[in-house]
Design a binder for these strands. Sequence first.
DNA 1: CTGAAAGCGCTTACAG
DNA 2: CTGAAAGCGCTTACAG
Lengths: 344, 344
Amino acid sequence: MPAGDDATASRPRAATLRDVALLAGVSVATASKALNGRDNVHPDTRRRVVEAAERISFTPNSLAQAILAGSTGTVGLLTNDLEGRFSLPILMGAEDAFGAGQMSVFLCDARDDAIREQYHLKALLGRRVDGLIVVGSNTDPRPTLGTLPVPVVYAYAPSTDPQDCSIVPDNVHAGTLAVEHLLATGRRRIAHVSGDVRYAAARDRAAGAKAALAAAGLELVGGQVRYGSWSEEWGRAATHTVLDHEPGVDAILCGSDQIARGALDVLRERGIDVPGAVSVMGFDNWEVMISGTRPPLTSVDMNFETLGRRAAQHLVDAIGGSPAHGVETMPCRVVVRGSTARGA
Amino acid sequence: MPAGDDATASRPRAATLRDVALLAGVSVATASKALNGRDNVHPDTRRRVVEAAERISFTPNSLAQAILAGSTGTVGLLTNDLEGRFSLPILMGAEDAFGAGQMSVFLCDARDDAIREQYHLKALLGRRVDGLIVVGSNTDPRPTLGTLPVPVVYAYAPSTDPQDCSIVPDNVHAGTLAVEHLLATGRRRIAHVSGDVRYAAARDRAAGAKAALAAAGLELVGGQVRYGSWSEEWGRAATHTVLDHEPGVDAILCGSDQIARGALDVLRERGIDVPGAVSVMGFDNWEVMISGTRPPLTSVDMNFETLGRRAAQHLVDAIGGSPAHGVETMPCRVVVRGSTARGA
DNA sequence: CTGAAAGCGCTTACAG
DNA sequence: CTGAAAGCGCTTACAG
């Protein structure tokens, strides 16, 4: 158990440039120049200053530097994604794009609450972030934040304002890639079990899938997408229905990895060989959902980290004075595993 | 596709208190007092200043305020938890504890790389965070950051230095609670399939489980914990072994929800009724892993949000001059579902 | 090569 | 009640 401590043992305040200068016997201006590698500082002087700084563990106060520089080297990541499914890979991509340690990221979770979002926004602007990345919890368009004193990039969920810069996964293409993969592995009678039809992600993936089928002169088995919910349970229920009504089905394209898990379970229970008789595919390539499946699940990876890196790049460009506008879609990729290809 | 824009349409710089004062026709000092609710400002003056501030969307520069106040109202969350499994609930608990918007959080992912951690640490100290929360990726002790100019609270993974303040989930008690629940629902022949024995979490949970059994005059079926890996696959393999070697087993306590999923699958395949013949329990209560299981999985919730809130409270106390020391364990709770109790 | 001075945006005693 | 002055920690012309 932690025990309370006396508050009197007060923590030493952080060292200041003035402390360094005093210790090195130079002026604050000279100390500044010495530490920042400016010209016209005598080597001996520089060494004395650097040693003094090290001795007292001097770390320059970024706040003071920022106030002079007019930029803070911070960005705000405003998310509504409680699971961190999107925002964490995006954060990671962003850290990479900014260059490790160059930029620090404030992470704020608005919890899908507009009031809380405004609150965080106000705080971030007060802290003079150089820019903002806004991460939605799905790919449906979200209200723009409007005109702000700093650039904004919308990631995952696009802004409603086409003048804003938005980076979203290409769900239409994801659907196309999925069907192309199934066709390439010899499938012709493909069913599509997806999630909640109110999600753009579900409709976009279906649109891409249908387009790819049409290009091959085919259509979905049963003639329609079976929309439902983003759950294993729906995956199981719909798979039963598909198998009962479409005996010739040779592939089930599932709108998410969770739905695909449900499909795999039912196929296994009914003794149907995967991928021998029926192939199964998911979307998202969510490692934790996929790692245990039998057989390992083929899935479309939406490349969240790349998306995050791209969003960060756009933000850096915008901060540098070259903003972009409109919605940019990011390519995705099929990760082939045993549920669609023997020996994969 | 976003199109590049001319960099000349430069963004208007953020309004400053000087702008407000000019617009309201008062001095900067008076404007400051008016906006901060200080006494001795004429009501008319205050109104003029407030109106001016609103008109130009003035947001005070927190950097300047921080430099004077000596505290920034920011904390750093230094994590090694790539999945966000722990750090996001902890972040959320921390946001709550700090009071929404009072405190902004820098999230830095060190990716289990000591160099990167030092880099982020340096940046955070430069930004003069008021304190740090360090989140580990497991409950094994991690090296202390040593003495820093700001207070530090270690969450999930305790620090190796007992003088530091660490908040960890009580895995021993979790094991005890799990077994007590199984005993209370009439189980006597309990097997324990767990993850990698090198993890303190695995050993602690097992220790708690064995203690609870001993208190009831019992021991584990087979006399030992079956350690392996934190995977569904291991859950399946170990469950087969348990069923083959211990025909009378009436409960399988699994070291994680993933292991438990594997156990449930095998029991189902072998036609064994859950929970009629054999109960199954997991640890972590990871919603996304659990939501699809049949029957729904009983699991021990480690209360990460509470842990995060507690860590944040300790940090706030330490910032306020009342630091705590030592390792504090947080209670967990059993969430009962159908895998151990009919009709739950 | 070094340092005094000005200044970033703000707040807080202190005169008036 | 109001405002000029000092100052937080730093950097950058500008004199010397």
